[in-house]
Design a binder for these strands. Structure first.
Length: 300
DNA sequence: ATTTTCCCCTGCCGGC
DNA sequence: TGCCGGCAGGGGAAAA
């Protein structure tokens, strides 16, 4: 699923191809895609406009227009953006929701199998991310995100650290996959109360978050399910994942079998030896209950 | 104020 | 072969 590294990969590919181009046409094929539900408004806001910048905030992609307005997109679960030098071949895009045409003959398609993705036009003079999301947290790769800041954000929270890492109003851009990866790299059990880590653990987690995100960006994102980059190509990060979607496989660090459980409505993967649960009972292999159905370790 | 639960969507996959 | 339940998870709203 597109998280920060996947959106950043797409942004980096689209920016040089879109900036300076003018929109010559836009087709909204799925009214559900636009918010508020008024496709005509999106069309009129885009038609004839020149794209001045393509940026990212959290998991949002932001296209600044010469009108001062911004086209904001969120891919959610299965959204894809695909730039092509020309028109997509008939039938090439199976779940096409929208198509944008540019003045150099290129097109950008928005495909989305599950129709959770959204786009909206943010009026001039408004912070696009704030306008849409209400409040977005700190950029985990920005300079302002320090270990101390992370500790402050987590302070006093009793909810599981994994769940809190997914809260976009605190840190913007982490999703289920990279939360698992960062916690493993930092050797922190995902169910630990968010405010209960030691200073050393917050430092390790801070480092791990940035490291895993950077590795993922360098690898062009993770094509676990339907993710493709801005040119339709799969990423390589799925091969570099440490624990996520690897239940039943050996831990890359110690060889212990990786476990899976549901935490906060989300599948969660961890190594019971590298990430011991201080509060929770037997973190050893052979835990009597709750692990019986955790044997689907088929990925790749 | 924080935390938890439910819901939105649809393709895919394993089981029967 | 085909139907069916379960699963995937970002995010927002509602409930606790």
């Amino acid at each position: 699923m597109p998280e920060l590294p996947e959106v950043e990969t797409i942004r980096a590919q689209l920016a040089p191809r879109l900036v300076g181009r003018r929109v010559t046409g836009i087709e909204i094929r799925d009214p559900l895609l636009v918010e508020p539900a008024d496709p005509a408004r999106v069309v009129s806001a885009l038609q004839g406009r020149r794209i001045e910048a393509v940026e990212r905030r959290g998991k949002y992609l932001l296209c600044a227009l010469d009108s001062g307005a911004t086209l904001a997109l969120h891919l959610r679960m299965t959204g894809r953006l695909h730039w092509r030098a020309g028109e997509p071949a008939p039938g090439e895009e199976r779940f096409l929701r929208a198509l944008v045409r540019l003045d150099d003959g290129a097109t950008v398609s928005f495909g989305d199998q599950r129709r959770f993705g959204r786009m909206r036009v943010v009026p001039a003079g408004t912070d696009p991310a704030e306008y849409w999301a209400g409040r977005l947290g700190i950029e985990p790769l920005g300079d302002a995100f320090t270990a101390r800041r992370l500790a402050e954000l987590m302070a006093g929270r009793a909810a599981a650290i994994k769940t809190v890492l997914l809260d976009q109003s605190l840190i913007a851009g982490l999703g289920n996959m990279y939360a698992d990866e960062a916690l493993f790299a930092a050797r922190v059990h995902p169910a630990r109360p968010a405010g209960s880590l030691s200073d050393a653990e917050y430092r390790a987690l801070h480092r791990a978050i940035r490291k895993r995100l950077r590795v993922a960006i360098a690898a062009g994102g993770a094509s676990i399910d339907s993710y493709r980059d801005g040119l339709g190509q799969p990423g390589r990060m799925q091969e570099l994942l440490l624990v996520h979607r690897r239940a039943g496989e050996p831990c890359p660090r110690c060889g212990t079998i990786i476990l899976k459980r549901t935490l906060g409505q989300r599948a969660t993967y961890w190594c019971p030896r590298c990430q011991p649960d201080p509060a929770g009972g037997p973190a050893h292999a052979g835990t009597p209950e709750g692990t019986r159905r955790d044997h689907e370790g088929v990925s790749r």
